[in-house]
Amino acid sequence: MDKPIRVLVAKPGLDGHDRGAKMIARALRDAGMEVIYTGLRQTPEQIVAAAIQEDVDIIGMSILSGAHNHLFPKVIGLLKDQDAEDIMVIAGGVIPEDDIPALKEAGVAAIFTPGALTTEIVQFIRDNIKR
C-alpha cells in the first residue's frame, strides 16, 4: 500500500506571517504528502506534542520574527526528551547566513531561506526522511 510522507508544518513564535508556511504546505500537498497544518503562534511544546500524536516523518517550521536561535533548538531538545529524535526537523524563513551553521549543529537538517524553490524542498524531504 502507498504510504504517504507525513509532514507537520508549524509556525512557532509570535510573528503572524504565514503565507510562506501555507505556500510550502500547498507545495508538499501537491507533491503527494500529507501535511498537518497547525497554524500560527505555536509553542515548541505544542509542536512536539502534535508531531508525536500525528506520527509525522518530519517537522517543517517557519519563522520570520528572529527568534529562530531559541525556538528551533528548543523543538529539537523536546523531541530528544521524548525519544522522538528520529523525526527530522527542517526550517525556513528569514534566517541570517551567520546563524545557519549553529542551527545545523543543533540538529536542524536543512534551512531554506527566501529564494529557495519549493521543488528543492520536496526533493530534500524525499531524499532524506528515514523510513
Partner: peptide, 30 residues
C-alpha cells in the same frame, strides 16, 4: 487529493491548546 494523493489536514488549527493536555489524543487522517 484525488490527483496527487496529498492532503492538507488542517483541523488541528482549531484544537491547538488541546495538544498539550495529557488526557487528549488528536489524530488527523486523510
Amino acid at each position: 487529493s484525488p490527483y496527487t494523493g496529498g492532503a492538507i489536514l488542517g483541523d488541528r488549527i482549531r484544537m491547538n491548546d488541546l495538544a498539550l493536555d495529557p488526557g487528549v489524543f488528536i489524530r488527523s487522517m486523510g
